[in-house]
Each structure stands twice: as C-alpha cells, then as structure tokens.
Simulated assay, not measured.
Amino acid sequence: MKDPVNTFLTTEAQQQIEEHIRDAEKITSGEIVVKVVSSSDGYAKACLLGGFIVSLLLAISAMLIIGSRDMWMFLGVFAALFVAMHELIRQSFALKRLFVSSAEKKIKVEEAAISAFYRRGIDRTVDHTGVLVYISIFEHRVRVVADKGINEKVEQEVWQEIVDMIVRGVHEQSQAEALCRAVDRCGAILASHFPRKQGDRNELADSIIFGRAAGR
C-alpha cells in the first residue's frame, strides 16, 4: 500500500506552506515547525486482535460450509487465514482503524508529537519559543506542542484554534490551504508575545518534515 504521507501534499503545496513559515517567522522570534506522519504507531495489538477475530469467524464459516468438525483442519484453516488477515490489516489503514479505539489513538499521537518535539531539537531554541504542528494522518489528529517559553504566556487552549483549522481542512481535502492559514495564525499568536528582535536568526529549518507510517 502506498504510504499516504507521500500524497498528503503536492510539491507545490509544500513549497507554498514553507514560504508561509518563512513569512510568519519574519514577524516573530518564535520558530514554527510542521511535521506530517502517516501514523503515530504501528498498533501491533490491533493487528493481532483484528487478525484473530476475522480469521476465527472466517474459519468457523468455512468449516460450516464444508460440513466438517475436524479440529486439526479447523486449526490449519485458522492459521492460514490469520497470517493473511494480520498482514492485510497491518497494511490497510481502513481495516486497522476498526480495531483501534479513539482513546488509544489520542494517547499515541500525544506521545509521538512530544517525542518528535524533543528529537527534532525544537526545545533548544535560545528563548524556548519553538512550536511544533504535528499532523498524524491515520488517526485524523493534530497536536500543537509549544516550548516552555511560549507556554508561560500562551494557554494550551489557544492552540485548539490551529488544531480545528487543520482538521477541518483535511476533512474538506484542502489541507494545503488550511496549513497555510494555520501557519499564518501561529505566526500572529507568537508575534503578539514574541515580536522579532534585532539579531534574531532562523534557528530551525523551515522545511516540512515527513515521517513514514510506524510499524509498516
């Protein structure tokens, strides 16, 4: 299956968003980073659970159809189906979603976003004014992670506007336009608290970061 992160944004859209990032950072000392991933976790347990349930139902149905009660035959059919169904669910976002709860998706996105924030060094800007806009396609979730310098002045609830803007844009299949607006809004929020100062330099790359699907 093609990794959806490869089709989330066109090359032209990427360039447009990156230009908006550069423009936003001209008015603030803050740093804006955008990361897009296909999935925040491989959800191995969901693949196992889904493979087991689907294979069990199919194996029982097959035995009923052929009219056999042979346990060894049943186990053989079940094992073959489990291998196939487990791989199918692992590769299919649509099927995998059936076996992943909303609560689990929320937790995994939260963990992955915070991990990316530190792994990418967004916490190491001079004034601790870095912001990560993290988008996870499988979970249909967006998380904004701000450094401590920003959190001292901007409440987390303020970033919900950014989250809602991007989620709505993705649902409307206008993610490029939504991300441009979101970046502009991030810049305005940051500029109101952290206006650009003389001698400010660009501490983090403006390029969008793309990540492959976890566990695939």
Rank of each mutant, 00 (worst) to 15 (best):
Y43T: 07
S38R: 07
C180D: 08
Q15Y: 05
R141N: 11
I32K: 03
E177I: 08
P195W: 01
V154D: 08
S115K: 13
L58D: 06
K153V: 11
Q175E: 15
V77P: 05
V154N: 02
V144G: 04
W159Y: 13
H171Y: 10
R201I: 14
M73A: 12
N202W: 05
R212V: 09
W72N: 13
T28E: 01
Q15S: 10
I65Q: 12
F138D: 01
V83K: 12
V126Y: 12
P195A: 07
V154P: 04
A62S: 09
S55P: 06
V37C: 15
L9N: 02
R185S: 05
D41M: 00
K2A: 13
I66V: 06
D23C: 13
M1E: 07
A59R: 04
G51L: 00
L56F: 12
S55I: 02
R216K: 11
V131R: 04
D164G: 05
E157G: 11
E31F: 00
S192Q: 13
M71A: 14
L9C: 03
R119Q: 15
V133K: 03
L204Y: 01
V34M: 01
E110C: 11
A24T: 02
V133M: 12
H140A: 15
R124T: 11
A191C: 01
L64P: 12
P4Q: 03
K2T: 10
T11D: 15
E87D: 11
Q198R: 14
P4Y: 00
V144H: 04
F194I: 06
K2Y: 09
K2Q: 13
C186F: 06
D123W: 02
R90P: 05
A103T: 13
K96M: 05
I189N: 03
L49M: 14
G121K: 02
R143D: 09
E172T: 08
F138G: 02
R181E: 15
I107Q: 15
E18F: 02
H171D: 15
R97P: 04
L49V: 13
E111S: 08
V133E: 06
E31G: 01
I17F: 02
Q14V: 08
T10S: 14
T7A: 14
G42M: 04
R69E: 11
A13D: 07
M85T: 03
